[in-house]
Write a protein that binds this DNA or RNA. Structure first.
Lengths: 249, 249
DNA sequence: TAGTGGTCTAGACCACATT
DNA sequence: ATGTGGTCTAGACCACTAC
């Protein structure tokens, strides 16, 4: 680890000040992107990393804690430091803010309606920064909880990131875990745009509701640790017994 | 500051382990609740607080940084530590996630439609934990951006926390700043439940849209630093040119 | 018992804002 | 020039987990 961070006064036109722990943080993030450690494997402890990077253990600690806050790493006292994993359980709480008005949240089961390679719709290409000639995998699903279909999803994945996806014999419910383990793309951040819309004839039919009933519509773009935009998702969902929950502070 | 935190082994049935910095954090939070420092006033620096609490400066630092992350405090290098304030600018970004599909976010202007004391609706009493005989102030507003009315709000405030509110000659746009400066209630945390609904006849009229057009409906409960539930708010808003934005990570 | 992360301290120095 | 928060280091010890 290079310690020029504090020599800005000797290079006033150089890059702006970056604290050492930030440099360590970026470096570790880069090592994760480069797959230096396997999923589920324990990272070296603070002293070993400190030695490798030629900084103090305290600086490594600060960097690792920052990565933990950003949900990149998970640390367990007495055990070690691990790369954060998309399990079914944390999928529910981290990226699925749809909760029933009454009772416990549960993960909806999924049924694939359609899976194919398509010309990329203009809006999708725009939001995923795809070129005109790049194709996408199109996956449509309907999802149900307690026997009631409540969610319809149209999912678009750039072909370049998901080679062979259309030939998958089985698409699991928890897609982000699947992306992470099978395709080595770990969703790090999502952005949802939420609107209210009226149910189309087709959606109404699939959901078992009336045309022009109100639906929540989310448009999501998902980004990986290394900044790749790997998923565009448009979700319509009933909100008569569910709501989208947002806590701010 | 009492340092029994690390003597748990001597009181195995005592309270569970609390690190010193957490104790300092809670203590400072309590001091803020008790109005020890005025809004806008600078807090004592780390060394002075450390001396007062009989802990090291590093421990105070950790506590203050935790409070900063929780948006309770704001720290400015070279200046000092302050109690976080609800300004017009941060109101926009912290508690107003409604953004236009195109262009910059701006704060909608507000017009009061109604202001009175009312019997508390059952749902409001439930969510704000009010007793049956406690009354609320009811405030209805319509809000517009660029000449277009896009938001209707029904706001309910417990009378006990907002004495004299109905006689206010002027209700400003940024309510949370108003609550904080005039009534000394600082909103710390909100919880929004979002649904899609159809516009009622009345809402449609006020918004200048058709009955049964789709609207986003948020139901919000706002909580202060000391855990008081001070506001119930039901918002309906057009989402044809706006969306509710949620970033997860 | 050994090894991990978590806490606490003390001290030196840097970056930033104000006077 | 002064005072604030921010960074970095080094070392001691505590709490938790696994073996």
């Amino acid at each position: 680890m290079n310690k020029t961070a504090f020599k800005n006064k000797f290079s006033p036109n150089g890059p702006s000040f970056q604290p050492l722990y930030k440099q360590v943080e970026d470096h570790v993030r880069q090592l994760i992107i480069e797959q230096r450690w396997k999923l589920g494997e324990v990272l070296p402890n603070e002293f070993k990393l400190a030695e490798e990077f030629n900084v103090s253990q305290g600086t490594v600690r600060k960097a690792l804690n920052c990565l933990t806050e950003a949900n990149v790493l998970e640390r367990k006292q007495g055990v070690g430091t691990f790369i954060s994993e998309h399990t079914e359980k944390n999928a529910l709480y981290r990226f699925f803010p749809l909760v029933p008005d009454e009772g416990e949240t549960e993960l909806p089961s999924s049924e694939v309606l359609s899976l194919s390679i398509q010309i990329t719709p203009k809006k999708v290409a725009e939001d995923l920064h795809l070129k005109a000639n790049e194709e996408v995998i199109y996956l449509a699903r309907k999802r149900e909880v307690k026997g009631e279909i409540c969610i319809l999803e149209d999912i678009y994945l750039p072909v370049k990131y998901f080679k062979g996806f259309v030939d998958e014999p089985e698409i699991p419910d928890t897609l982000y875990h699947f992306y992470q383990t099978k395709y080595l793309h770990s969703v790090q951040e999502t952005s949802d745009k939420i609107k209210a819309v009226l149910a189309s004839t087709e959606d109404a039919k699939l959901l078992g509701i009336n045309e022009n009933d109100p639906l929540l519509m989310f448009t999501r773009v998902a980004k990986t640790l290394d900044g790749k935009l790997i998923e565009y998702r448009q979700t319509r969902c009933r909100s008569d017994n569910y709501h989208y929950l947002v806590n701010l502070n």
